[in-house]
Design a protein around this nucleic acid. Structure first.
Lengths: 183, 183
DNA sequence: GTCTATAAGAGGATAGAC
DNA sequence: GTCTATCCTCTTATAGAC
């Protein structure tokens, strides 16, 4: 059974957006891979932008959940570790999906509009929490750096040919992020 | 004197590519901002791709210089610090230019072709050197993470509203990258 | 060196038959 | 739900006058 055409379209789109980029991927290509015509896609999604939104939303939801939880917690070393761990989980789970953002930020920005602003806002809130209360500029820079380390979960696809076990990646990157954070 | 039209075009293109993305920026927009017509651009650059190449090449050259120097050095803690420092300098100096790459990697990949492969190759060589001789998977992950920290030089534009002095940024990010690297 | 005019094509999106 | 056919707009790029 291939019951859910809508879901198939979403999966194909994730694959293409994450490798070729959002702008570089035409609806014709997606339709071809799914085995439909361009016009048929519009029955399932009213626009290319709507398709993008359907793809990206789960990641935003994940970030928001982590952020909401964090902001209810005191900024202790244990809690920082916990928050970074949870965030890393979200990133690893949504790996293919997040590549969509990294492949063509400009295209996503142009298409996603307010959704993108939401992502910036959530990411900013999270970075601010990680930086701690009344942070110095240096602490804020370190917080940004720590977040960038987690991004290595995606870059590693480019640079490491061999497969890395999710568990090892989580462990190493968490420790590395904490290293980037402390003075 | 506005003697060098060619250089003016390059500067306007960097500005637009880095904010709107390579694909999202049309030659019409560039021409408009420069005060020429689209057709006139083609007198100075034979194609949009050639324009991109002219923009990106200096960054590639910078990376290559750092990489070549690194590969002639032993992998000692002092040398690692030196290499990361030099790389950070290159990134800070070429900040607007590097944003072109980050804004629309997919578009750049599609247009730059072999040039892009060169960049991947150089970045890979550098990451490998930073990981040290016969590295474990964990060491390679940490090397990737350290490189990502340097990228915070660019992300900080998004997250830090206030201006950060180049000197402070270099100091903090270098220390943070070293923190990400060590176990 | 810069212009006007135009070619040649791809993209997203819609109308309406089946 | 899927199709064919079409619209409209925008793009990169070229031809040729000045």
């Amino acid at each position: 059974m291939d019951g859910d055409t809508r879901e198939t379209i979403r999966e194909v789109a994730i694959d293409l957006f994450s490798t070729r980029g959002f702008d570089q991927t035409s609806l014709r290509e997606i339709a071809e891979r799914v085995g439909l015509t361009k016009a048929s896609l519009y029955y399932h999604y009213p626009s290319k932008q709507a398709l993008l939104t359907a793809i990206v939303s789960p990641l935003l939801d994940g970030w928001r959940a982590v952020t909401d939880e964090a902001e209810g917690m005191a900024h202790t070393p244990d809690n920082v570790r916990h928050v970074l761990t949870t965030l890393l989980d979200v990133m690893v789970v949504n790996r293919p999906l997040a590549s969509v953002l990294l492949r063509d930020p400009a295209g996503v920005v142009a298409a996603a509009g307010p959704l993108w602003q939401d992502m910036i806002d959530v990411a900013t809130r999270l970075t601010n929490w990680v930086a701690g209360p009344e942070p110095t500029v240096a602490q804020r820079l370190r917080a940004i750096a720590a977040m960038e380390v987690l991004r290595a979960a995606y870059s590693s696809i480019t640079y490491l040919r061999e497969e890395v076990a999710d568990a090892e990646m989580r462990e190493v990157l968490l420790d590395s992020a904490l290293g980037a954070l402390r003075r």
